[in-house]
Design a protein around this nucleic acid. Structure first.
Length: 932
DNA sequence: ACGCTCACG
DNA sequence: GACGTACGTGAGCGTA
């Protein structure tokens, strides 16, 4: 019954993207009950298709129809002009997962559904319209996009589906002032701010049409531009000729594409009722399913809708099956996966490497997963022989793709805006890819999703998440790599063993994502995830890759000096003790102090050993030199081993710099943590330790700049607890600890003694930590009763603080979590515990909103910083909780300080209006010691 | 592997 | 009435 497309045929071309966006914006967010999948746009899309189908009767009915979609964001137009559509807003988060479903919906209606990588839907429609016209048929384009108006004429018309208004030649003339053939000329001149087509500055559609009508076409106009009377207009056309010609190329649709299908493939077919009903049921659309079933004259299938998330069993589990994972060994096999990724719009990615330090390790292989249970591993650099093979052990194993070939094939998907790349701790993989020249974006991260939802409940490593949320224990890596000295790197793992392990990681990640993504809304942490967690990934990746220059010679000299002093102290200590012992063993030190010397005040740890912490030794030091010497020795040993020695090992041989790694999901409160090495605890409190910072230097011609928030936690406390006296003090720029002391002890500010101020300062910090009489007493070394008196006095003067504390604890007891000002949730599972646990949990709950809000503030500043300083010769290097460190060219220091301070001081805006202004102190110098 | 101690905010 | 406590981290060392 197939008829050849030709005279008498009528082709309908539906602009799929326009349908999707209209559907998305017309409907409120709607989620599928069973799993929370957003389906609002799909529902709207289905409605529009249904209305379309219903309206297709009578003599004007189409014989052929197709819905045409965009695919990928990179087209030949981006090659012509990299700014094409560059200012287009990113696709909304909850729309992206619905895109593949709109394809499914179209197929469910048995309507042809077409898209071609690298081309816009407009080009496909242009080509089809020309083919149909040339074959003698009629064409109707269902779209209101003015870019398509150039196609109108000779049997091609547009139909605005919203206004139900047909647009023919006259309609185009009305809109553009020229015939359809000249529409591109007008667009080339007028440009298009939506698509970021430049055009000619200062010329709009009206003027453009005037000029084209006068000179006939664009080429003639540009050739004869000298003749234009208005001087400004003339000059614009002469100056911007290249830009105008480029614009024409951008707006000109491609009517001669090679299509992998023919018009005949687009013939109108009746829907297959079962397929359509199956799709609607799967989407859990009750009303729409019933309506369409009625229209089709069939019984509506029962759509089961769960009443709450808890009642729903886990989405029917596809069992984990390592045998199903594919090993991808050549380009053809990889291409199959890439095609599937484009079709899906998302992919879970995992990299395997030769180690854990992403600045050093080599890429060994890549895993991909597009659907639960369906994953592959692409081995790239596995060695042929195991490590203990003495002969030819560096030969590559057979059957692996060439690294560059693989990365070149994957790069388009990994960099495409249209494909979401899903990872578990994506910062790691993104840094690896970055070193291989691939800029992975956009990304989702299951670790960060878990962190946003479950901070405080458990850690967010893959093993934990898989066990907890998928009920599946991942294949352990240990048996593959071995332990200790005989451990091998992943490139020595035989490929057949690597495949199940590596592919499973991607499979797990995808399943976690499918589960977590819809839950972000339910748990109301989407904004936290999207503004405070995820955007930090590229920012931190860049900072970590920047690294900071560390001068090994400086450290080395200090290390030698420390060693000498330690040797001297060691000898003295042996003499004082009367025998040799291990100075660094607390148990031995305790034995000497509390048994051999018989000193009082010793306590034992829960393991039964003598305890010798610094504060105890400090008290003893007044009685006996031994304790003081131990303290001195310990300080030096700490500085030497942790800083001057270990830090040198962390200098990267390629960059000469130290590259820390930040954990985004480590600290429950939202703070970052720095590891390998920890650069957030470089000494500063003692003069000797502080000198370590002299080794953190700027390159020649550059300067280290440090900006830190002044008293940010106390300011946040003043805001949250609404303490007017504190707010006023910050407003007036008064010394906040002195003010506290003055209020508490009725001492005028100008008679304040350092001792009284010190006590008030301890109380201020104590408040932030969830103060207790015992803790304050120990900190200030005063009797417990006296400390309690201070606290009572404090609460009398600042009753808002006590209220904040009580309110916070009762909120935590009721809800099981506390919140920062920006909505970050910190779970408090122990808050209702009995016994000593309870005290910990209470204090943590009191502290978390304050510490967490401060953490949120600096995160916001960091996310905004790269754009703010983009045109400055400056790099952001480190974050130390309330401080950001930069390396800046000497001439740009003041600029950088001005801009970065602005970003930091206003970081809470516009989400939160703080009653207290945030203040930022700045310093600069050749090294970190000078900058602080 | 774990506890102790100590470096930072 | 006793208990055991300042909040949040990471690293190096000694000891099991």
């Amino acid at each position: 019954m197939t008829t050849q497309f030709g005279k008498g045929c009528h082709l309908h071309l539906i602009d799929g993207s326009a349908f999707i966006f209209r559907a998305y914006h017309a409907l409120p967010p709607l989620t599928r009950k069973s799993d929370g999948m957003p389906v609002g746009a799909v529902s709207g899309f289905v409605n529009m298709l249904q209305r379309y189908v219903e309206g297709n009767s009578g003599p004007d009915a189409p014989t052929h129809v197709a819905v045409i979609f965009d695919k990928g964001s990179h087209t030949f137009r981006n090659d012509l002009y990299d700014q094409y559509k560059a200012n287009r807003e990113a696709m909304p988060e909850d729309l992206r997962p619905q895109i593949p479903l709109t394809r499914d919906a179209t197929r469910a209606f048995n309507i042809a559904c077409e898209e071609i990588e690298g081309f816009e839907a407009d080009d496909i429609m242009a080509t089809l319209a020309h083919q149909a016209r040339d074959a003698g048929g009629r064409v109707t384009i269902l779209s209101s996009d003015k870019d398509l108006m150039q196609l109108v004429g000779d049997g091609v018309e547009m139909l605005d589906p919203m206004k139900n208004k047909r647009i023919d030649r006259d309609g185009v003339l009305e809109k553009f002032g020229v015939a359809p053939e000249r529409v591109v000329d007008v667009q080339a001149l007028a440009g298009d701010s939506v698509d970021n087509v430049p055009g000619a500055p200062g010329i709009g559609i009206k003027t453009a049409a005037l000029l084209i009508n006068e000179y006939g076409d664009l080429e003639s106009l540009l050739d004869r531009a000298q003749e234009i009377k208005q001087p400004k207009r003339r000059q614009t056309l002469i100056d911007h000729r290249a830009q105008i010609e480029l614009s024409k190329q951008l707006v000109q649709l491609d009517c001669d594409m090679e299509l992998p299908f023919t018009l005949d493939d687009l013939e109108v077919k009746d829907p297959v009722v079962d397929d359509l009903m199956a799709f609607l049921t799967e989407m859990e659309f009750r009303t729409v399913t019933k309506r369409i079933a009625d229209k089709l004259g069939v019984e509506a299938p029962v759509v089961e809708v769960a009443t709450s998330a808890e009642e729903v069993a886990a989405p029917e589990a596809v069992p984990f099956d390592a045998d199903k994972y594919e090993c991808v060994r050549d380009a053809a096999a990889l291409q199959v996966w890439i095609d599937r990724i484009w079709e899906r719009g998302y992919v879970a990615v995992d990299t395997e490497t030769t180690g854990l330090n992403e600045m050093v390790v080599d890429l060994v292989g890549i895993s991909l997963c597009v659907e639960a249970g369906q994953a592959c591993y692409v081995p790239l650099a596995h060695k042929a022989a195991p490590a203990d093979d003495l002969f030819g052990s560096d030969d590559m194993a057979d059957g692996q793709m060439d690294m560059d070939t693989c990365l070149d094939l994957l790069r388009p998907v990994l960099e495409s805006d249209a494909v979401m790349k899903i990872g578990q701790n994506m910062k790691y993989d993104a840094k690896i890819f970055a070193r291989y020249g691939v800029a992975v974006a956009p990304i989702d991260d299951t670790m960060l999703m878990s962190y946003a939802m479950n901070a405080g409940l458990h850690n967010h490593g893959m093993d934990t998440l898989s066990d907890r949320y998928l009920g599946h224990t991942p294949i352990p890596i240990k048996p593959l790599l071995g332990t200790g000295k005989s451990a091998i790197t992943f490139d020595r793992v035989p490929i057949d063993q690597a495949v199940p392990y590596a592919a499973e990681d991607a499979d797990i990640t995808l399943r976690l994502w499918q589960q977590f993504k819809p839950q972000l809304h339910v748990k109301q942490v989407t904004t936290v995830y999207e503004t405070l967690e995820r955007p930090l990934v590229p920012v931190l990746a860049q900072m970590e890759r920047n690294g900071i220059k560390v001068d090994r010679d400086t450290l080395s000299r200090m290390s030698n000096a420390f060693a000498q002093k330690m040797a001297g102290l060691e000898a003295e200590l042996y003499q004082l003790a009367g025998h040799e012992f291990n100075v660094q063993a607390p148990a031995q030190v305790g034995k000497i102090l509390f048994e051999e010397m018989g000193l009082e005040g010793g306590k034992k740890t829960k393991t039964g050993q003598w305890s010798t912490p610094a504060d105890v030794l400090e008290d003893l030091a007044t009685e006996h030199d031994f304790a003081g010497r131990i303290l001195d020795y310990r300080q030096l040993a700490k500085l030497k081993s942790t800083y001057t020695d270990a830090l040198q090992e962390h200098v990267n041989p390629d960059t000469g710099r130290v590259h820390t790694s930040y954990s985004i999901a480590g600290a429950n409160t939202g703070r970052l943590a720095s590891t390998d090495p920890n650069l957030q605890n470089i000494p500063i409190r003692t003069e000797e330790g502080r000198r370590i910072r002299e080794a953190f230097v700027a390159e020649p011609g550059k300067v280290i700049v440090a900006l830190d928030y002044s008293q940010i936690e106390l300011r946040i406390l003043a805001h949250i607890a609404g303490i007017d006296a504190l707010k006023q003090a910050f407003l007036d720029g008064i010394d906040i600890h002195a003010m506290t002391a003055s209020e508490m002890f009725d001492v005028p500010l100008d008679e304040m003694t350092p001792e009284v101020r010190r006590q008030a300062k301890a109380i201020n910090f104590g408040v932030i930590y969830g103060i207790s009489g015992f803790g304050l007493a120990r900190n200030l070394r005063i009797p417990r009763g006296e400390a309690q008196g201070f606290i009572d006095r404090y609460f009398e003067r600042f009753p808002g603080i006590r209220k904040y504390m009580d309110d916070t604890v009762s909120f935590a007891k009721e809800h099981g979590y506390v919140q920062t000002l920006f909505g970050r949730k910190i779970n408090t599972p122990e808050i209702n515990a009995k016994g000593p646990h309870a005290g910990f949990a209470k204090r943590a709950a009191i502290n978390a909103p304050i510490q967490g809000t401060a953490a949120d503030v600096i995160r916001r500043a960091m996310v905004r910083m790269p754009d703010a300083i983009a045109d400055m010769p400056a790099k952001m290097l480190l974050q130390v909780h309330d401080e950001l460190l930069f390396e800046v060219e000497t001439g740009a220091v003041e600029d950088l300080i001005g801009t970065a301070r602005e970003v930091m001081e206003n970081a809470s805006d516009p989400a939160v209006r703080l009653d207290v202004k945030l203040a930022v102190d700045a310093g600069q110098g050749a090294n970190w010691a000078e900058a602080h």
